[in-house]
């Protein structure tokens, strides 16, 4: 089994791109386009200018990792409304909990699709339960042994940021 450092950059990019695109087209009928840029550049905490909903799901196995999906609150609400078949008023009544749960599930599906591709490449791992952060400023500092990749996707007029943190596992 190759070490995580030996996995070519294009594999991560293709895998996460396929995962995001599959989830957003299947569940939300939206197309996601990978924004050009350097995936090795860590996001500056100040880039989060507006309140965000951040979904996180981990995977444990021959690769251990965490993926954060960053969505601005209005985008998160839009996704939740579509997924739950609610209008804005119904979603407002359902509250932040409904939005959190929906983004948790979108993250779960995205990370699941990502890690299933890794599993099929010979890196078996299993998913953890999703968690949600709501914040305006966030700074994630990985351990030095972890590798990190950041990809941004344009979905309609919104940006989805996928932050991948991984290290070789068991």
């Amino acid at each position: 089994m190759p070490a995580i450092q030996d996995i070519p950059e294009t594999v991560f990019q293709d895998t996460v791109q396929k995962a995001v695109q599959r989830v957003f087209s299947t569940m939300l009928s939206r197309s996601a386009v990978l924004e050009p840029g350097n995936s090795l550049t860590p996001p500056d905490a100040t880039e989060l200018e507006n309140p965000h909903v951040v979904g996180t799901v981990g995977f444990i196995g021959s690769i251990n990792g965490l993926i954060y999906l960053y969505l601005e609150v209005p985008f998160a609400q839009e996704c939740a409304a579509h997924l739950l078949g609610m209008n804005a008023a119904q979603l407002a009544k359902a509250g932040d909990e409904a939005v959190n749960d929906a983004i948790g599930e979108i993250t779960n599906m995205t990370v699941g699709t990502f890690k299933n591709q890794l599993s099929d490449r010979g890196f078996p791992c299993r998913l953890t339960i999703p968690s949600i952060l709501r914040c305006s400023r966030i700074s994630v500092k990985p351990m030095s042994s972890a590798i990190r990749r950041i990809y941004r996707f344009k979905i309609g007029s919104h940006i989805l940021t996928a932050d991948l943190l991984m290290q070789t596992g068991e």
Partner: peptide, 9 residues
């Protein structure tokens, strides 16, 4: 009905 869809799972 799961996101755990790798061959092993």
């Amino acid at each position: 009905l799961t996101a755990e869809g790798g061959k092993d799972s």
